[in-house]
């Protein structure tokens, strides 16, 4: 209608688009900057909400890793039949030692078992009352670390089937339980994460809703002078993006700080348990993930608020 298009003063659409978006980005950032306290407050709420599930996730990962490193000390005990002679027992130990999947195999004779038991239990005198040595000979097997749980189970089945062996026992019940618990905890963390993601969206959405209410005059004027909805929507969406980004960065900082604070004690704890495990921290990928998730939730939250509340302000 006006002369602009004919004059050719309108730049090509792409550079116009970039200029406009850059302008909106910086205006909205400037607006947030001018109210640092309320901005920081909202971003902190988002940050804490994001850091919580991320922190739980890191915790579960670490517990899993630590417990796996303890699996090194995992041992299987093969209790031999009384009918098995010490020679047969030693020969079997040699055979098993060469078996794939076995890191170490050691033979403990009935006499050694008894001596050990006497020493450790303090029931020495009670044992003297018995005529026969009640303890069986044992082959102690240390499985290789790289075995999966299924392979380990199969190994145990083979041991049980050996004619010399009475019972084969794997000392890992508590690990099994821990894994089961961790699996549950992990699922709970996912549910919590989903709920908190919703909370972030609601936080952003509500902040944007208030923003829209405060700017209703402005929105009305914009519509009166012919601003399309996309134009009116854009600053609010960018505000959501900024909140999400800031929240994500705060979440990352919180998590990073917590891990730094915990690394020292964790190393000490690990050395107590002769574990070489150190805390699994945040990989660069998961460091990027947090601001990314923040931005995504920010956009979704503000889009939701804008979709619901912008249409109400039709000029009248």
């Amino acid at each position: 209608m006006n002369g602009a298009e004919r004059d050719g003063v309108r730049p090509p659409w792409l550079s116009r688009w970039t200029e406009h978006h850059a302008r909106v980005m910086f205006t909205t950032l400037g607006r947030l900057w001018r109210e640092p306290l309320s901005t920081l407050f909202t971003a902190a709420v988002i940050g804490i909400t994001l850091a919580l599930p991320a922190g739980l996730h890191v915790l579960v990962q670490n517990v899993r890793a630590i417990s796996y490193s303890w699996e090194e000390s995992l041992q299987a005990s093969l209790f031999l039949k009384d009918s098995t002679s010490p020679e047969q027992g030693r020969a079997l130990t040699q055979t098993l030692q060469r078996r794939p999947g076995v890191a170490r195999a050691g033979y403990i004779s009935r006499e050694q078992s008894l001596a050990e038991f006497r020493e450790l239990s303090g029931f020495g005198q009670a044992l003297d009352l018995l005529q026969d040595n009640p303890l069986p000979a044992v082959i102690v097997i240390t499985p290789r670390r790289e075995l999966t749980r299924e392979q380990l189970q199969q190994l145990m089945n083979e041991f049980s089937a050996l004619p010399e062996v009475e019972i084969a026992k794997l000392d890992q019940k508590w690990l099994e339980r821990l894994y089961a618990i961790l699996a549950i905890v992990e699922r709970v963390v996912y549910v919590i994460a989903a709920l908190l993601a919703l909370a972030v969206m609601v936080t952003v959405g509500n902040t944007i809703r208030l923003d829209i209410e405060n700017r209703r005059e402005e929105i009305m004027v914009m519509k009166l002078i012919g601003a399309p909805n996309s134009f009116i929507r854009r600053p609010f969406l960018y505000t959501g993006v900024w909140y999400g980004l800031l929240g994500g960065l705060i979440a990352w900082l919180l998590l990073y700080g917590a891990l730094q604070a915990l690394t020292g004690p964790a190393l000490r704890l690990a050395s107590l348990y002769e574990s070489t495990h150190s805390l699994t921290g945040l990989s660069p990928a998961s460091s990027l993930l947090m601001p990314g998730v923040g931005i995504l939730l920010g956009i979704l939250g503000s889009a939701w608020a804008v979709g619901r509340h912008l249409v109400k302000h039709e000029p009248s």
Binding site: A4, R10, R16, H20, E217, I225, P228, F231
Partner: peptide
Amino acid sequence: NLLNDRTVHDNVALPLVIRGYRHQD
């Protein structure tokens, strides 16, 4: 119906911003 938190210049510029004019124009 002016936006009271923006300067006279920015108020008058608004319709041009909406239409995507360049800064210099």
